[in-house]
Simulated assay, not measured.
Amino acid sequence: MVEQQEASGDRLTTRIGQAVMLLHAGDREEARNRFGALWSELGVEGDALHRCTLAHYLADTQDDPGDELAWDLRALTAAEALSDERPAEHPDALAVRAFSPSLHLNLAADYLKLQRPDPARVHLRRARAAADALVDDGYGGGVRAAIERLELRLRQQ
Rank of each mutant, 00 (worst) to 15 (best):
L42Y: 03
P117D: 00
K113N: 08
V135W: 05
A109P: 04
L38I: 08
A19C: 08
T61F: 04
L23R: 07
A59G: 13
A37S: 14
R32Q: 13
A7M: 12
E45G: 13
A81C: 14
V96Y: 07
P117V: 00
R128G: 05
A81S: 15
D47P: 06
V2I: 14
R121P: 06
L112R: 10
H90R: 11
H50R: 11
L103P: 00
A120F: 03
A98P: 03
A19I: 04
R125I: 02
A93K: 07
L12P: 05
D92S: 07
V135M: 07
L23T: 02
P117I: 00
T77W: 09
D72M: 03
A79M: 08
H24G: 14
A79F: 05
E89I: 10
E148D: 14
A37D: 13
N33S: 11
S100A: 14
T13F: 09
A59P: 00
L107D: 01
H90K: 04
R15E: 11
G141S: 02
L105E: 02
L58Y: 04
R34L: 12
M21Y: 12
A19V: 06
T13L: 10
K113Y: 07
A95R: 15
L23G: 01
A146N: 06
G17W: 02
R32L: 07
R125D: 09
Y57E: 07
R15M: 08
L23A: 06
L22H: 06
L82Q: 04
A95Q: 15
R32W: 05
